[in-house]
Each structure stands twice: as structure tokens, then as C-alpha cells.
Amino acid sequence: MDISVVVPLYDEVESLPELTSWISRVMNDNNYTYEIILVDDGSRDGSWDMICRLKESNPFIYGIKFRRNYGKSAALNTGFEAARGEVIITMDADLQDSPDEIPGLYRRITEDKYDLVSGWKAKRYDPLSKTIPTKLFNAATRKMSGINNLHDFNCGLKAYRKTVVKNIEVYGEMHRYIPVLAKWAGFTKIGEQVVEHRARKYGKTKFGWSRFINGFLDLLSIFFVGKFGKRPMHFFGTMGTLSFFAGTVLALWIMGEKLYLIAKHEHYRDITDNPLFYLALVAIVLGSQLFLTGFVAELVSRNAPERNRYQIEETV
């Protein structure tokens, strides 16, 4: 099979007939073998009933229904697990992503040999409440991930080589950072393509400000797990050692100062009357705790079932 189109959706009953018809038309015009995987993320507007009706007239549609709303990341991860195509295309169900972009994205994967190609909506029709947080996230993600050639990490329209989606796990709000997950998994040939962004035709946006906070926390999680997931002692141990060392030096300085004043028969104050003493004490205690945290995390990591799971590109 050439292409699997994975479409996560939540309350998009009005757009589904037009979207699936449009995708099928593009596939047939280009003679692609394909499947359309519609993942209903707990919709309450009759989206699942519509999927069942569409399935009756289009055998290339495959529907998956969640019992409740889990989020876009869960829907994408489930769709990735079910996908059988050599190239996987993801797009949103609100018709703001154009299926006409599929052939171009497909060629970037098959002919240009990219692992992942992310769409870039250079001209957007979203409100400022959505575009401003997106710009901030993209700037922060480029800085932390080192993927400097992508303008929009969160664009729903993306193309993947099959091996990419089968070797990453998307959870929480991680769908915003799939290129970062792919890079940490060893898939470094990541490209970008300008795509059309259409004004929303049906329904309303699901974007909320809570996603701004969750997305930032997930970005930190990706950075930490990707860099220190298999060697947590390198992070906690280093921070703990530096903190303990700084506290010890400060404590020795305070004690040395007191002994010097005693030797000079000058007035001195008790160590506990010096505010720096408590700062040194906090640094020593915090350093010890960080070091022990790293030690425990290292033990957990060494006993994890996937501690020696690595990405192997090929064997001969």
C-alpha cells in the first residue's frame, strides 16, 4: 500500500463527507493505493455514525472510535499503530488542510528520501490567540531541539516514512513535537514544505489556553527524556555535585572567617547568625537530594525493560 492518511477528529461531523471524498479523488487521480484512517477521539456530535455511513460507500475508510476524549496525541499514536502504508500522511479533519498537498508530500518522502516532511502554513487564517502562542512555541522548540529548518512544528499536515511512525510514541501533548521525537529516535532527515492553509468551513477551533501550558511542559519533557532518559545520573548527579560543592565551599569560607577573627582576637558572630550559613546548608542538602535522585533514577533506568532498545537502521 502506498499511502495511509491518518485523520484524528473530534466533533467534525460536517466536514467528514467532503474531506474523505476529496482525499479519495486525489488518490484516484494519482493512482495511489491508499487507506483513510479516521480516529474519532470521543466525539459527541454524531461523527462516528457519519464514519460508519461513509465506510459503507468507501471501502478504503477505516474507523477507530475512542470511548472518551483522550486528545490528539492519543489519536495520532493509535492511527500510527494501525497504518499499513509505506508513507503516512496526517491531516486535521476541519478542512483547513488541503488533500491536494498529498502528492507533493508523498514525492518528498519517496523521491527526495526524507524521513519526515512537515507542512508550513506560511499564510494562516487562524486568530491571533492561536498564531501568537504558535510562534512562541516554534521559536522555543527550534532553540531546544536544534531543528532550525522548520517554521511550524505543530502543522497537522505532515508526511512520514513508515519506519518513523512505527518507532516513536506520541502521548500527552507531544503531537506538537513529533519532529523532535523523530530526531531523538535517530531520524534526522527532516524537511519542510509550504502548504495551503484554508479558513475553517465548519465548526469551531478546539484550541484553548491550557494547551499553551501543557505544550511547554511537554517540550521540557521531550528535551529531558531525549537527552538524559538513559543516563539520568548525568543530569541529577552533575547538578547535585555542583550544589553540594558550592554549599561546602561556602560553609568552609564561613568557618574559616570565624577562625581568622578568633586568631586576631577580633569580634566575631556565631556561625548560625550568618545568613550565608543557611544558604550553604540548603545548597548541601539540595545537592545530596539531587545526587540521590539521580542514583535512584539510574537504578530504575537500568532495570527498565527497554533499557537496551536502540534504533537500528539496517543490517546485512
Rank of each mutant, 00 (worst) to 15 (best):
D2P: 06
Y10K: 07
D11V: 01
S21M: 12
I23E: 03
I23Q: 01
V26S: 02
D29M: 10
E35C: 04
S43Y: 00
R44H: 08
D45N: 03
S47A: 03
W48P: 00
I51S: 02
N58W: 03
G63S: 07
R67T: 12
R67Y: 15
A75T: 04
N77S: 10
A83D: 09
R84N: 11
R84W: 06
I88F: 06
I89E: 04
M91K: 07
Q96N: 08
Q96I: 13
G104R: 14
Y106K: 07
W120K: 11
D126P: 02
L136A: 14
A139Y: 11
T141S: 10
S145P: 04
N149M: 06
H151F: 10
L157A: 02
K158Y: 03
E173M: 02
R176S: 00
Y177C: 01
L181K: 03
K183L: 13
A185P: 02
K189L: 08
Q193I: 09
V194G: 05
A199Y: 15
K201I: 13
G208R: 14
N214A: 08
D218Q: 14
D218N: 13
S221T: 13
K227M: 04
G229S: 08
K230V: 05
R231H: 07
M233I: 13
G240P: 07
S243R: 07
L250F: 03
K258P: 03
L261W: 12
L261F: 15
E266L: 13
T272I: 15
Y278C: 04
V282L: 10
V282H: 07
G287Q: 07
G287R: 06
F291Y: 11
L292H: 07
V296A: 12
V300D: 05
R302C: 09
N308R: 09
I312V: 13
